[in-house]
Write a protein that binds this DNA or RNA. Structure first.
Length: 429
DNA sequence: CAGTGTTTAATTTGAC
DNA sequence: GTCAAATTAAACACTG
């Protein structure tokens, strides 16, 4: 039955009734770019560039980008700006790219229904137009990962994360409470995300969130909806990496036993709890919560362990430069690196560079030259054009050019990738 | 108090 | 069908 449509059924208000991926809409991607994953690029084609403002420090607008400091942003010149395209190649995946489902498309096709082999049964219809507010084919984990990676400092606060997502994906302008809760859950629950304490100088509420250095390419299979396997540190790593402390304590200690979690679960893998069934009987709700809460609280975050951990101010500070596309001098995230230094001394960087799906390096380094290309190819191939692009693509480059001012528009205006879609080919019309 | 973080639980969804 | 990943919901603690 209707399976396919379920999820947001409620909200579909916008969808005009059509089913999510269903027939009417699907993100069509133009993935073709050749890169392994760049599929994403198409998706977003340039969302906005606009500098969405607010990017405070780290978060670079999704699309932003571009190269020029001077103009850029904000203007949304064209909708689709030229930017985005870059390919993001996901490094890792390429290596393994599985059999391409659709011709050249390597791995993930963002197309709804297809990514990863096809989500459900829907078939892609070639002409599908992209819908504006369809749910993006990325899991929350993917979104978080992308957002962090595109940030110059490689770390974002929760709020920046939210902002990035909403700026980019209109879909998420709805039901915020729901997805934001999920985002928070994902951050806390997944070992691939680590919390980096804020500098004293920077007031503010939460801490920064970064990717665990070892998380590597979590989406090697090319599917952004579902990882083949969840990244689990042995146990306390998460914290360790970040700083030390943290969750490991409770969780690890107690349950941690298993590898990953085993906590309880015997099987090893169960990430979550495994309890559902078994313990269900025991008073499910009430009890659990109580306890949970308690401990959670107490673990709090880790004190700044090593000197390193925190982001150095300069990171956040306005970049005086605008980054040119070219110099990818890598991100400043060093600090972050540093933080993990103890964990992975050398590389960390490399890690991402090669493996991470949304590796910035890929984005930045290579494509730069070409980035100018106006949109990637419209290749309407089968799936038409407006597909998913990696939101990150342009972003990285952007670096915070806009700095804080703008913001406003983002939401209203759209800088979302959808724009691209729209504007793009619209072929079918 | 609102936002941020943790955690448990239930359910959905995708891969095998 | 099973298992695991992802999503959603919600309780609760901590912090600014």
């Amino acid at each position: 039955m209707l399976s396919a449509v379920k999820m947001e059924g409620h909200e579909h208000a916008d969808w005009s009734g059509s089913g999510y991926y269903g027939e009417t809409e699907c993100y069509t991607g133009n993935m073709n770019s050749g890169l392994s994953m760049n599929s994403m690029s198409g998706y977003m084609s340039a969302p906005g560039m606009t500098g969405t403002g607010h990017m405070n420090a780290h978060y670079v607008n999704p699309v932003g980008v571009n190269h020029h400091p001077a103009m850029p942003v904000g203007v949304s010149q064209s909708p689709g700006g030229p930017m985005a395209q870059a390919g993001v190649g996901m490094g890792g995946m390429s290596s393994m790219s599985p059999p391409p489902p659709y011709g050249s498309v390597p791995v993930m096709s963002p197309v709804y229904g297809q990514a990863c082999g096809g989500i459900r049964s829907r078939e892609p219809k070639p002409y599908r137009r992209s819908y504006t507010h369809a749910k993006p084919p990325y899991s929350y984990i993917s979104l978080i990962t992308m957002a962090i990676q595109q940030a110059g400092s490689k770390m974002l606060t929760l709020n920046e994360l939210y902002q990035w997502i909403t700026d980019l994906f209109p879909f998420y302008r709805q039901n915020q409470q729901r997805w934001q809760n999920s985002i928070r859950h994902s951050l806390s629950f997944n070992d691939c995300f680590i919390k980096v304490p804020r500098l004293p100088d920077k007031p503010g509420k939460g801490s920064f969130w970064a990717l665990h250095p070892d998380s590597g390419n979590m989406f090697e299979n090319g599917c952004y909806l579902r990882r083949q396997k969840r990244f689990k540190t042995g146990r306390g790593d998460k914290e360790a990496a970040g700083a030390a402390g943290g969750k490991a304590g409770s969780e690890g200690g107690s349950v941690g036993s298993g590898t990953g979690g085993g906590g309880g679960s015997s099987s090893g893998g169960s990430t979550r709890s495994d309890s559902p069934r078994s313990s269900a009987s025991d008073s499910p709700s009430s009890d659990a919560k109580g306890t949970g809460a308690e401990r959670g609280a107490h673990r709090g975050e880790l004190p700044p362990p090593s000197p390193v951990r925190v982001p150095s101010p300069h990171l956040f500070s306005p970049p005086h430069h605008h980054h040119h596309p070219h110099h990818h001098h890598h991100h400043p995230l060093l600090l972050h690196e540093a933080a993990h230094a103890h964990l992975k001394p050398d590389h960390y960087h490399p890690h991402y560079a090669f493996n991470h799906p949304f590796s910035i390096n890929n984005l930045m380094s290579e494509p730069q030259p070409h980035r100018l290309e106006p949109l990637p190819v419209p290749v309407p191939g089968q799936y038409g054009g407006g597909g998913y692009g990696c939101p990150v693509s342009g972003a990285l480059v952007a670096a915070k050019g806009g700095l804080e001012h703008a913001h406003a528009h983002a939401h209203t205006t759209d800088s979302s990738y959808y724009r691209g879609a729209y504007t793009r080919p619209l072929v079918n019309s």
